[in-house]
Amino acid sequence: MHTSLPQKTLSAAPKRKKWTKGDYAVFIILTLTALLILMPFYNAVVISLETNRAYALHPVSLYPAEFSLKNYQYLIDKGQLSIGFQNTILITISGTVLSMAASVMMAYAFSRKFPGKKLLFLLMMFTMFFSGGMIPTYLQMKALKLIDSRWGIILFVGVSTYNIVILKSGFEQTPVDLEDAAKIDGANDLVIFFRVMLPLQGPLLATFTLFTAVAYWNEWFWSMLLINSSGKMTLQTVLRSIVAEAAAAADVSTGEADLDVFSQGVKMAAVMMAMVPIMCFYPFLQKYFVKGVMVGSVKM
């Protein structure tokens, strides 16, 4: 079946049946590249599953010599990470929903005609190239009483001008006929927006939802600046404190009884735990974001 279909893939190279020498060379180079990219992850997994004794003997090995989940156990018992997870999940979900809703509305409005559009669009574009910078932004956050508030992080990441610009051209390219047809059928503005316009932007919306969610999940710098109380700390700040606190880590590896727990192991276990949610969602969303990025780059 696939031979009769016209080429829809990104590949511009024609299909061949037999692999040539060049094909094998490409195959080998790409396999090596992929392995090199995966190596740091694999290295971290192995260390996180190791026991202290085995790690002391062979810090670099292909597989855990003495398999143990004690490092993970230790992290879960300590509870810090679960607070981080709770806060980050809360911030990611509410932030993504708010940010996407606002971006979509703004982009749709910008794709229509109204008085003052040019000026407002220029004002928005300007923020892509010039900003007040770190200190004035921080002082503004302080003035708005957003210090030590989860809202501060939600609002700081906020909406992305770039996403709005791309989404706007997406809406602009929807045929006017579609809208007219819906109007003749008696649909009002809201119905047109939700039933006609939005579904057409599927890949772009999926892409930007993914990007926004990842931005919230990964945000470290501003959550470090804004959040003081330990109950509101996000996943990345907790992770950073676990990794950076050398003193606390040393205490772990020389501490009382549990010799199976050790600082590098705990650090890498924390790293793995922070990554797992992204690793889980990522493969499913990949086909959308590649499409979305392509559309975006063409539309720019």
Binding site: T9, L10, S11, A12, A13, K15, R16, W19, G22, D23, V26, F27, I29, L30, T31, T33, A34, I37, L38, V214, W217, N218, W220, Q236, L239, R240, V243, V271, A274, M275, I278, M279, Y282, P283, Q286, V290
Partner: peptide
């Protein structure tokens, strides 16, 4: 290189793996 891959499934796997680190947080 990706463009020259004759096998679609291999190409997809290579893309999935090479795009992955972009989504990992700076702290990690």
């Amino acid at each position: 290189l990706l463009n020259e891959v004759p096998n679609k499934r291999f190409k997809k796997a290579a893309q999935t793996i090479t795009y992955l680190p972009y989504f990992i947080s700076s702290v990690v």
